[in-house]
Design a protein around this nucleic acid. Structure first.
Lengths: 189, 189
DNA sequence: TTCCCAAACCTAGAACCTCTAGGCTAACAC
DNA sequence: GTGTTAGCCTAGAGGTTCTAGGTTTGGGAA
């Protein structure tokens, strides 16, 4: 009987794919073992426990999203950069709902430090260079942008906008327009 | 041996309290049964299944939050109303993290229709009366506000802002200031 | 008071998931 | 070939969900 050839990386990858298919909450060690044609106990030599598996999916998703955003941001500045960032963010959440949900699991400080979570605020700060905001307004703006992007995508994914007929793509465009205006006229303290 | 006297309402209430204590994800029928001093199977005559229980906690939380926001909004208009709404929203999330997390579970359409979810957009629209926005800009603004409030509170709760020393209360105040300016100068299409 | 019935509670058990302990074996290096 | 090790196994304990069907209790009707 040939071996399945499970490795730690392939396991996390499979978990991420499964999350996109059936939802992050339904990712289970047993289901993954079934997918590999292997007993569930066998996976515990690769992954420690189920919580660590979920955290590693989160780290994977954070890195993937950071890569996408970085690619979208290349060679752009000002409003172009803002729109490219935002669309890359929202598109990733749409393409990979399970991975995006995984990003919300709280990471222990030491793994959070080495993960791509920090790259996000760095890149958001890069956008804001085009708007010339002093500290601490810059930090406040980073938090506002991240909040709005995350809030919009997660509410949209949860169907929170479906009670109004208005197209969500249109609202998104107008939201980005509004944020651009806001950053251009950030109120003084 | 006296009976525990479990009813459907008390069960949902206990589930909400437990969620605030140990986190919504750790709310389990077994744990609730232990809390009531009762076998877990006994609770299934009150609640159908675990998923329905979680949905009912969500409905409870939506109603509670709507009440809080409505109370905060009474007699206010314009920027005062905006700040009061936002603070009521964020304070509820801080006071009841488990209930707030419950609000994120997707509700089946028929229960969503009868829940307080609709009151939120109504009240947000009430705020916007002070800013005189025509449709569809008003819908877009409702979505932006809701997104920002939800995004900020959930990222803050998840510790997403803790890598920067900047006080989160201060950022929140500045964010509200910025949103007020934005609504006052909503960009034309 | 007595009866009765519906709500509250029970036991038993199947199905699934997590995780530990300990043993076997395929595949690769020497 | 031989050893090492990573991959995989069985066995089993313990937790959670949920069904089926039986028992008790408390309060209102007769």
């Amino acid at each position: 009987m040939p071996r399945a050839g499970v490795t730690s990386e392939r396991l996390v990858q499979a978990a991420a794919d499964l999350a996109d298919e059936v939802g992050f909450a339904n990712v289970t060690v047993s289901a993954l073992a079934r997918g590999f044609g292997v007993r569930d106990a066998s996976l515990y030599s690769h992954v420690g426990n189920a919580q660590e598996l979920r955290q590693r999916v989160a780290v994977l998703a954070l890195a993937e999203l950071a890569d996408r955003v970085a690619a979208a941001l290349a060679g752009r500045a000002g409003k172009d950069a803002l729109v490219a960032f935002a669309n890359a963010y929202r598109d990733y959440a749409k393409d990979h709902p399970g991975r995006y949900a995984a990003m919300q699991v709280p990471l222990p400080p030491e793994v959070a430090a080495t993960s791509a979570a920090g790259r996000h605020s760095e890149m958001t700060r890069a956008i804001l260079r085009g708007y010339d905001l002093p500290e601490p307004a810059q930090t406040d703006a980073v938090r506002l942008l991240h909040s709005t992007f995350h809030g919009y995508t997660s509410l949209e994914a949860a169907g929170g906008f479906s009670h109004t007929p208005r197209d969500t793509d249109a609202s998104w465009s107008r939201t980005l327009e509004a944020l651009h205006v806001l950053l251009s006229h950030w109120p003084p303290p």
